[in-house]
Design a binder for these strands. Structure first.
Length: 495
DNA sequence: TGCGACTTTTT
DNA sequence: AAAAGTCGC
């Protein structure tokens, strides 16, 4: 008997570690609520996690088994849990962030001390962080070269889904865990295990989020993938930047929680690619490749974080003199509330609060606005996204923020500053996205909305009295941002 | 080692 | 058209 520990892989299908364990004999699936991980969680992500776990548990139940739900420090609880269910090996899939690697090293040692075998698998990405390197043997810091190697490499097929007979029967799990849920033999007082019983957010010290977090679980993920690959993917390149068109995959949260496997996902895109190629339609082919590039970006940033765990808090690219952020607390608050007086920015920030999601193009716009119009440290934005995004992923969000702030690997140059009005006009010309999230502007002509910054205060008060005045002047702030970065580079801003 | 190339732009 | 700089071959 083996114990499989789910972490960011809340699925039975295409799960490399689980399949390996099932191939050897019976497996029991478990999830541990680690207090150290919960310390970094948020209302939104706890809700989303619990939804994913409920779906996973139901998938186990459909096969006559159940999910073991433990609470406590994995280092103390996993050896005891392995003992309680009589497992001789604990198996999991690798997680590549710094915190996760520290945790896993501790768990490895604890299991070793208890004489329990352990095994970690390569599952979360198609190509592991160490496996794609420059010809000189270094990790890549430029995406395009990374992509070339990533896309040329052979990929694994999806891992087989365990059959009902591979999973430990629910009756045996209940018998092993016992009535009180306390783990036997010297575990910490607070360590508890239940069979299929999930805690509520309140049990874990969290509130119900204000946002709707969206569907969870493998079935929902597969439905989403099928819908996307049925047609939208073939016009992805032309459509993806228009937030009102909802032309993106919306797979991010499913991938973050591992409710669908990357091999299964990629294989499905390969089928779409082959279909487009056989039609000989270049635009459709390029669109599928464009989407595959997004999967490669996910792995690019995974390997950036793996090789540079300090980027979570530090600039990847340090400026000689350091950046002196303006960090005005009132301006940052206006940004988080979606009250900047820049319609596309406010729409994005409000979508985030309402849906725990933001369209990718708009993420770039609000990130550029925070760093280069408000001159606020990207860490403020990263922290806010981490609290409110259901799909928050350390590697991707950190990579995105450092890209926007011109401090990252392959970041945009510091002088590349988005114009929030131009962006709104170009990517939401009819202001459909804007008015969906900014009710104060409903009923106005799109032209008027895109000219908001140019109207006089009197005009603004007349047409939309409830909507804020622009809190900054973009042209002025653009010059200030250029000067800020030049000083950080040790240059004279006057030149 | 010289050089082509570099996610998402702006004025 | 120009705003830099440097990565990777």
């Amino acid at each position: 008997m083996e114990l499989f520990c789910h972490r960011r892989d809340l699925r039975l299908a295409d799960n490399v570690g689980l399949a390996a364990a099932a191939d050897r004999g019976e497996v029991a699936g478990a999830f541990v609520f680690d207090p150290d991980v919960l310390d970094h969680a948020s209302d939104v992500r706890v809700r989303r996690l619990l939804d994913g776990l409920a779906a996973l548990r139901d998938d186990y139940r459909d096969r006559g088994s159940d999910l073991l739900v433990a609470r406590g420090d994995p280092e103390s609880i996993l050896p005891d849990l392995a003992d309680a269910v009589d497992a001789d090996r604990v198996v999991w899939n690798r997680d590549y962030s710094g915190l996760a690697r520290e945790r896993d090293a501790g768990v490895r040692k604890a299991l070793n001390d208890s004489g329990v075998e352990r095994e970690a698998h390569h599952d979360a990405v198609l190509h592991e962080p160490d496996s794609i390197r420059t010809n000189a043997g270094d990790p890549y810091s430029v995406y395009t070269y990374y992509w070339k190697k990533w896309t040329d490499r052979e990929t694994d097929s999806p891992a087989p889904t365990p059959a009902a007979g591979d999973l430990v029967d629910v009756g045996a799990l209940t018998a092993a865990v016992g009535d009180d849920g306390a783990v036997a033999d010297g575990g910490a007082e607070t360590d508890r295990v239940a069979v299929g019983d999930l805690p509520s957010p309140a049990d874990l010290g969290f509130d119900a989020p204000d946002a709707e977090v969206g569907p969870a679980g493998t079935e929902a993920a597969r439905g989403r993938l099928d819908d996307f690959l049925d047609e939208p993917v073939f016009s992805y390149e032309a459509e993806r930047d228009y937030p009102a068109r909802e032309a993106t995959s919306r797979l991010s949260a499913f991938l973050k929680y591992g409710e669908i496997g990357i091999r299964e996902t990629y294989e499905a895109t390969e089928r779409a690619l082959a279909a487009a190629q056989s039609e000989g339609d270049e635009e459709r082919v390029e669109s599928v490749e464009e989407f595959q590039q997004q999967l490669a970006w996910r792995e690019f940033y995974t390997q950036v974080l793996y090789h540079n765990p300090e980027v979570v808090t530090e600039n990847y690219k340090e400026y000689e003199e350091g950046i002196e952020w303006r960090d005005d607390p009132d301006e940052i608050t206006a940004w988080t509330r979606g009250e900047t007086g820049y319609p596309i920015v406010d729409a994005g920030m409000r979508q985030l609060r309402e849906e725990a999601f933001m369209h990718n193009r708009v993420r770039m716009i609000v990130a550029s606005f925070l760093t280069k119009d408000l001159l606020a440290d990207w860490r403020h934005g990263y922290d806010h996204f981490r609290e409110h995004l259901a799909d928050h992923d350390t590697a991707n969000d950190n990579g995105g923020w450092q890209w926007a702030a011109s401090t990252g690997t392959d970041a945009q140059p510091y002088f590349r500053i988005f114009n929030p009005m131009t962006q709104g006009e170009r990517y939401d010309p009819e202001a459909e996205y804007i008015t969906e999230y900014v009710p104060e502007l409903r009923g106005l002509d799109a032209d008027l909305i895109h000219e908001w910054h140019e109207l006089s205060p009197t005009q603004r008060a007349n047409v939309a009295p409830e909507y804020p005045e622009p809190i900054v002047d973009h042209s002025e702030r653009r010059e200030e941002a250029l000067a800020m970065y030049k000083r950080a580079r040790g240059e004279d801003p006057e030149e």
